[in-house]
Simulated scan of single mutants.
Amino acid sequence: MATKPTLTELGDFLDPVLQVPYRGKKYQIQPVSALTGLRFQKLLAVGVKAAQDGNLDPASIELVSDAEERDFYADALGDTYQELLDDGATATALKMIGSAAFLWATQGFDTAKVFWDAGGKSPAPNREQRRTATRTRTAAVATTKPQASASGTTTPKAKPRAKATNGQTSSSTGTASKRTSKTKE
């Protein structure tokens, strides 16, 4: 009889708790529920769409209303939300910790850590990333060929002009007040 493949216990490799240091204390943030996690994923998708093209439908706008924002931090932080309020956390700290918890829930610990280490700001790309981006753009410009004609027609090539011979005049009537070439007299 064949053995059935078994996966490792889920809790064995997931970070079960996010520890956030603030004012000398380490706050323990528990993972969000499945429904909250799904709502956060939708919220993240709306944020990405807004950043890319700025067009949001009314239902998407409601996802990020003021009332939703208050619930957002409470949902992201769980019991830690009330603990932070009881400890007198500032609004800025609550938003920073809540945003880190949101990133942890939607994109994982590494993304949350980058956000936290950057002080809540989007980190600037490192030198290698900037250089790669420049080379990619430069190479694309250098190798791009002009688009072919969409109408299927071609432009006829210009015929080379014949050189003038000695003694010809430069006017259309064939006469000139002055000769255009030197002749022996």
Rank of each mutant, 00 (worst) to 15 (best):
A34Y: 05
R39M: 06
L7K: 10
Q19S: 12
G47M: 08
V20L: 10
L38Y: 03
Q28K: 11
A51D: 14
G54P: 09
L38C: 11
Y27P: 01
A74M: 06
L44E: 00
L77Q: 02
F40C: 01
I61A: 09
P21W: 05
E9I: 10
V32G: 02
T3A: 08
D15V: 04
L18D: 02
D53P: 02
L56F: 06
Q30H: 10
Y22D: 01
Y22A: 00
A76Y: 05
L44I: 09
Q30V: 11
E68F: 00
A67I: 10
E69P: 00
A51S: 15
A50W: 02
D71I: 01
Q28T: 14
F13L: 08
G11R: 09
G54W: 03
Q52D: 14
L10Y: 15
F40S: 04
V32E: 01
A76I: 02
D71W: 03
L44R: 01
P21M: 10
D12V: 06
L10S: 11
D57M: 15
K25H: 13
L63I: 06
L38Q: 14
G54I: 08
L77R: 01
G11K: 13
V20G: 00
Q41R: 13
A76K: 01
L35I: 13
A76E: 03
K4H: 15
E69Y: 06
P58V: 09
K25S: 05
T3L: 14
K42C: 08
S33R: 14
Q41F: 08
V48G: 00
G24P: 00
V46Y: 00
V46I: 15
L7M: 15
L44M: 07
L38S: 12
P5W: 03
T6G: 11
K4W: 13
Y27D: 03
S65W: 05
P58N: 04
